[in-house]
């Protein structure tokens, strides 16, 4: 699938997949202010890479790759604000009930906490699993074999199961 390279098309792609950006940023950045910066950084990097998107992969695969790569490597709180000459005053992505984050729900908050405790690549894997992406798509995003995805996911799910079990027994 090919997209025109204009701003309107880009915004439509972001609008249609805004949940991806929010959920990835939330998994790698707990602090609210830092997360806003990270979301801004991800959208900026998506925009810079947008002209090179060639439709070889699904648009979501392309978005997950960039959002995860930016979240893991590039984001540094100290430098991000300096890099943007025109820091944006308001949020790009916001929740209707911004004073009440959605993950206040206790089980979801615990799940997010456990996800944030995982190693960075493992975190990406479980996030994609929870997003119900196929093993093939996860393999394309991460860059490992499908069988490795399966093995790794089993281990991570086991870790999560044990953490929930420990929490229940407290």
């Amino acid at each position: 699938m090919f997209f025109p390279r204009d701003t309107a098309s880009f915004l439509n792609v972001i609008e249609a997949n805004k949940g991806i950006i929010y959920k990835v940023a939330n998994a790698y950045c707990r602090d609210n202010e830092n997360r806003k910066d990270l979301i801004q950084e991800i959208i900026l990097q998506l925009w810079l890479a947008f002209p090179k998107y060639n439709g070889q992969f699904m648009i979501t695969t392309w978005m997950y790759r960039i959002a995860l790569n930016v979240s893991i490597s590039f984001y540094r709180k100290e430098t991000t604000r300096d890099k943007l000459n025109q820091p944006l005053s308001a949020d790009i992505l916001s929740l209707v009930t911004d004073d009440q984050p959605l993950e206040q729900d206790s089980e979801l908050a615990v799940l997010y906490r456990f996800i944030r405790e995982l190693k960075e690549l493992d975190r990406a894997l479980i996030l994609l699993y929870l997003e119900e992406r196929s093993q093939q798509q996860i393999a394309e995003i991460i860059g490992i074999t499908s069988s490795n995805v399966s093995t790794r996911l089993s281990r991570i799910k086991e870790q999560l199961r044990q953490k929930f079990a420990t929490l229940k027994n407290l």
Binding site: L11, Y22, I43, I92, V96
Partner: peptide, 15 residues
Amino acid sequence: LHDSLILNRQNAAAI
């Protein structure tokens, strides 16, 4: 999230 997440198109366009 789908129901409550809003994209500020003006700010996104500024980027």
